[in-house]
Design a protein around this nucleic acid. Structure first.
Lengths: 149, 149
DNA sequence: TATTGTTATACTCTATAACTATA
DNA sequence: TATAGTTATAGAGTATAACAATA
């Protein structure tokens, strides 16, 4: 087993190291934007496309429901999200961005994109190729996740 | 700003989503191997190439020294690592895998590699291409990190 | 009865600041 | 004095189990 921190890595080892690098970028960006935590930043980004129910959030974030309760509590106390009762089922809550949360989320997300883009000076053709393959990996995973339901 | 959880993503967005997917795989594998935490698993893997000093570990893991003290404490209490005094400088400690820690780390690491390999059914040529570009990203980052020192 | 979400509890992870031991 | 690492403390993140409100 070779040292995973240097030298030329095989496919899987390289992807794992890249994931740690990108998570480091993400965590640093979180601190840079209003001292967010990585988890709070991820929550905000997941709400950018509109309010999401607690159950769906828990599944997407791979969190137990009690863990999500705490995360939403802390993010709500900072004024970045609010809970909204579902009109159909009074047990259900939707989580939505506040105006402050949406502004912060947009700026944070754009910053992370810039940081990741500037990690390496790649040829445009290489970027497109990588984007295509990574989209294929993500699509294959979603397909297999659907099968498991 | 498009929903980052579905559809075709641009280069940076795709890499960020992939990093979250791989971290989920890594965390699940940690739980599957003796109920490791993600951080303990990462520590074990960093020691696979031999003992490492606390200072270097802290830099590699992006942890404050007190945070690392706690992580090594908990991992040591589980019998997976040991502290060894440096022979030259009696303030310095090296962290090393125990036999149990090394066996667990090897099995865990191999499992993560298999899991990541099997995320998608890619052409061998695509895997090689992705591996080459990701290695370039990692090398560019290390180069810029060296410049910042 | 079943489901959604919260509360209670315990533990891990992390940072800041003060401290000890060694150089 | 300076450096390597620990201790003290506080807070965030997480899971399990028990619970309340609603369906």
């Amino acid at each position: 087993m070779t040292d995973p921190t240097s030298g030329k890595l095989e496919y899987a080892a390289a992807l794992v190291q890249l994931s740690f690098l990108i998570q480091r970028v993400y965590a640093q960006a979180s601190r840079d934007y209003d001292q967010l935590t990585r988890q709070q930043a991820k929550l905000l980004c997941m709400l950018l496309s509109g309010p999401v129910g607690m159950a769906e959030l828990g599944a997407s974030l791979s969190l137990e429901k009690s863990s999500l309760t705490g995360l939403v509590d802390r993010t709500e106390q900072r004024g970045l999200v609010t809970r909204v009762r579902d009109s159909d089922d009074r047990r259900v809550w939707q989580v939505a961005l506040t105006d402050a949360g949406e502004g912060l989320a947009r700026r944070f997300y754009a910053h992370v994109m810039r940081q990741v883009e500037s990690l390496a000076d790649l040829d445009p053709a290489d970027r497109e190729y990588v984007a295509r393959i990574v989209n294929q990996i993500l699509a294959d995973y979603r397909g297999s996740a659907d099968l498991r339901r």
